[in-house]
Structure formats: C-alpha cells, structure tokens
Design a protein around this nucleic acid. Structure first.
Lengths: 152, 152
DNA sequence: GTTGAAAGTCGTGCCCA
DNA sequence: TGGGCACGACTTTCAAC
C-alpha cells in the first residue's frame, strides 16, 4: 500500500494518542476531520494500523518479572511450529526467530519468579525444545510500545 | 494503588480497543459511562494507564529490520547512564538491564541492515560500551503490544 | 480533496442517592 | 462509591462543489 507523509503524520498522531479526535488530528495535519477518518479507515483496512491499545504499567497490574529466553530447537523445527507453541503461553509478550546460536528468542512477562519458572517449564515441555538459556530482566530502561518516524 | 477486578476488566477492554467509548466499556463491565470515565481518569492519574496508542505494522512503515544487542559496559556504569544513552537513539524500542554475561539488552528496529549498522555504530560510540553482541531478528513470531490478565 | 448540514453518539461536569 | 441528566462537542454519513 502507498503511504504518503500525511498518512505518516496521522499514524504518528495516533501512536502518540490513540484517543485523539479526528478533528484534533486534522488540525495537526491540515486536513478536515472526514478526510482524516477516510485515511484512518483505509490504513486500518490495509493492516497498516492493526488496532488501538492502552499502554499499561506492567508493575501496576502485577506483572513484575521479565525474562528473555533463548530457545534451542530440534533440527527440523519450523518457525510456524515455534509460533504456535509460544502463542499458547499467555506469558509470552514477544517471540522472534534469530540469527546466531539460538533458534528463537522469547520475551516472557510473569507475576514473579515462581510464575516465570512455571512458564519456562511449560515452554521447555514443548517436544522440539532441546534446551533454553534464560536471561532475567533486572530493570526496564526503555519500553516503547511502538516507535514511528518523525512527529508533527 | 488499589485495583479491583472491575478496573482490571476496564483495562482489558482498553487494551483490546483503546478507542472504545465509555458507554461501550460500561456495557461490558456493567457500569455507566460516567462511572467508567472516573475510573479511567483515576487509573491514568495513578500511572496504571500510561496512555493510548495505535498498533502499527512495522513493515508497513518501512521498519523491516530488527536486532537484539547485548551490551557489555565498563565497570562503573549505572543503569541510568545506559538509559540516557539508549533513549537518544530513535531506533531503540526496548532496553533492559539483565542478569548474565551482558549488562544490558537493547532491542533495535531499523529500516534496513545499513540503518541498523548505523544505529549500532552510534550505540557503540557511547564511552561506557566496551563491546556488543548482536542478534538479528529473522522473523517476528509474536509481538503483543501489551498482555494483561483475563478478558471479559 | 473540500465544505456544510443532518442525526445520532459521546464526553464531561454537576447533582443526587 | 454509584447513577442520571444536560449541554456541547464529536462522529459519521450525506450531498454538492
């Protein structure tokens, strides 16, 4: 899909505040509210904008422990298999196939160490997982929900 | 702050759709729109809800290359120093101090390999960085913007 | 792409239980 | 706390330009 820089600025506006009114966004990008709505509808239909979400403080909802787990998988494991498996764990907030020694990197978020260990156990129970290497997060320095190009 | 399970369900609603009206959320949690608004205002003021954002397809905006970079830092480097440095790079979408060999883990998102290399160079230019180890993301299996407890 | 008008919905402050 | 009401603003869909 073609995205011009007006679209970019609309996206940046929505990333900064997803509850902004179309009139408000229009003022920032010099467009009328109906014009903004049409562009947003088009961007949503095209899958560029996947949805709108609230950014929650993980600690406030009791999600205080995080880890990154490197996954080492059996020879003929496909990314799709890994994807299916990790999506079953609600503790998984991110998962990627990666270059290097490990086959995948899984980002876990849990209530506490015990919960984390429990999730890790379920992850290791997958038949294709040969071994794992965990790295506990000590503190969160940056955690942008999404970062998009230049603002207004 | 005290969060009851009505708050939890309101949060879950907003995470699922940040543009839902208060009346809509109220219908799901059996509350009137003003009551929902008051709770949301309170949650925002308390920092539980940090804001509302759009979930963007990174590929659609030209952000196609990702990497995780392990940072090895000089002896007396504080997390605050690392935080300041990584926040200066717009390519950083996440950064954490971690247990294990490395001191920090930085999640980068760039337009392409050249851009990634450029960002990495700027990261390595920090005086406290003694060395880095990069892991390129081959594919994104899961990338939840936020995951919160049980839905409605 | 724009404007302007229509009807319906929503946000939000205020008051009462 | 919660709900109800009221007013103004916003959304959304038209039409016509």
């Amino acid at each position: 899909m073609q995205i011009d820089d007006v679209d970019q600025r609309i996206i940046a506006s929505l990333v900064a505040d997803a509850r902004a009114s179309y009139a408000e966004i229009g003022a920032r990008v010099s467009l009328s509210a109906p014009a903004v709505k049409r562009r947003v509808d088009r961007l949503r239909a095209a899958g560029v904008i996947r949805g709108f979400t609230a950014v929650i403080d993980p600690a406030a909802v009791g999600w205080t422990t995080e880890a990154f787990v490197e996954l080492f998988c059996a020879g003929r494991t496909t990314p799709a298999q890994i994807a299916v498996a990790v999506r079953r764990l609600p503790e998984v907030v991110g998962a990627y196939t990666v270059s290097g020694e490990a086959d995948a990197l899984v980002h876990l978020r849990a209530a506490d160490i015990a919960h984390l260990e429990d999730a890790l156990e379920r992850l290791r129970a997958q038949p294709f997982v040969t071994s794992t290497r965990s790295t506990i997060v000590l503190s969160r320095l940056v955690d942008s929900p999404t970062v998009v190009a230049a603002p207004t």
